[in-house]
């Protein structure tokens, strides 16, 4: 793992920022004809990809580094969105403060769920988050005086810095991607830290990690809390970008599609997250043009089964493993022939 240095992370992040910053210009002023016409539509799609990326990174960390699944992640996403929407529409709270409140609240809730579940071996967290996800969904739907019930809350204000209001496609695009990249860089650094190596150890063999003195339960709880806070951040962004929240984007199906994104992006792969988010978002956009009903759901199911059967580490890490193996083979073959490495 020595090749993965902080320098590389920095370079990759810089490259990402540059490319992301350039993207709207390509989309807006591209001269490639009808393919890349000026397009607020694309900016909208990529804005959602950024939001889903933040969610997917959290799940990737959780599944890959803590070896745990959350089947109720949409609940944290929803708590973030609703906290922002409720505080900004029902009180005079500033959107940024509301976002912070949502993140902190979600973190505390995740801590309360994670602590008892993650002290046990096995997959109690998957079960607990599943139950928790439903409870949150039911509360969002039923607690009408506060959450607006099924018809939700309208007129959520946009985020703003001074006079700069993030109310339009291009601005939302930059805002969400800036935060998504920030989350990616933070995550990459965590993965590369001592804590991150411990996470990997936990995933590899808990017994071995414990023998090395890694406090497993604490790390698992930390990564779970972190991923739930990412979800809350994404939820808050959703609320301020769409300016409307209602319960259905945060239901069990949403949790499942987040897990699908995580699986495609690859567990234990921070940079796979945008790939997973983009694949699912673009796939959905494409599939709705086909005449078969529910084809998207059928394809999700197939993706989950096929990826998990053949590449249990997820799509990206599967490819990574294959590439590493190939290189090693080539290297050993070269060594055998006496060629310099």
């Amino acid at each position: 793992m020595r090749w993965f240095t902080a320098q590389r992370t920095f370079l990759a992040a810089l490259l990402g920022v540059l490319l992301a910053a350039a993207l709207p210009f390509v989309l807006l002023h591209g001269s490639a004809g009808p393919l890349l016409e000026q397009n607020n539509y694309w900016l909208g799609v990529f804005t959602f990809i950024a939001i889903y990326t933040i969610l997917a990174v959290g799940l990737n960390l959780l599944m890959g580094y803590a070896g745990q699944a959350s089947l109720g992640h949409a609940a944290f996403y929803g708590i973030g969105a609703y906290t922002s929407a409720i505080l900004t529409t029902r009180t005079a709270c500033s959107p940024w403060l509301a976002m912070l409140c949502g993140i902190v609240l979600t973190g505390v809730v995740a801590l309360l769920i994670g602590m008892p579940c993650l002290r046990l071996r096995g997959h109690y967290l998957a079960m607990a988050t599943l139950g928790f996800g439903w409870i949150v969904f039911i509360v969002m739907r039923q607690w009408e005086p506060i959450t607006g019930g099924s018809s939700g809350i309208e007129n959520v204000p946009s985020l703003a810095i001074g006079g700069l209001v993030f109310d339009h496609d291009v601005k939302c695009f930059y805002l969400t991607w800036a935060l998504a990249l920030l989350v990616l860089v933070i995550s990459a650094n965590i993965v590369n830290s001592r804590v991150g190596r411990a996470f990997r150890a936990v995933h590899g063999s808990e017994t071995a990690a414990a023998a090395l003195g890694v406090p497993i339960a604490r790390f698992k709880v930390q990564v779970f809390v972190l991923s739930s806070m990412y979800a809350a951040l994404a939820g808050s962004l959703y609320a301020h970008v769409v300016k409307y929240v209602n319960p259905s984007p945060f239901d069990f199906h949403a949790s499942v599609s987040l897990v699908v994104m995580g699986c495609i992006g690859g567990m234990a792969s921070v940079w796979g997250a945008p790939l997973g988010a983009a694949t699912i978002t673009l796939l959905k956009e494409r599939l709705q043009l086909l005449p078969w009903r529910d084809i998207d759901v059928i394809i999700y199911g197939l993706i989950l089964i096929v990826v998990m059967v053949f590449l249990p580490g997820g799509l990206v890490s599967g490819v990574q493993v294959a590439v590493t193996r190939l290189r090693r083979q080539r290297r050993t073959a070269a060594a055998r022939e006496g060629a310099p490495l």
């Binding site: 607020n40 909208g44 959602f48 209602n246 259905s248 984007p249 959905k284 709705q288």
Partner: peptide, 12 residues
């Protein structure tokens, strides 16, 4: 697809 986020993108 009865999906709120999708609805935004579709309308866009």
């Amino acid at each position: 697809a009865s999906d709120e986020a999708q609805s935004v993108m579709t309308v866009k």
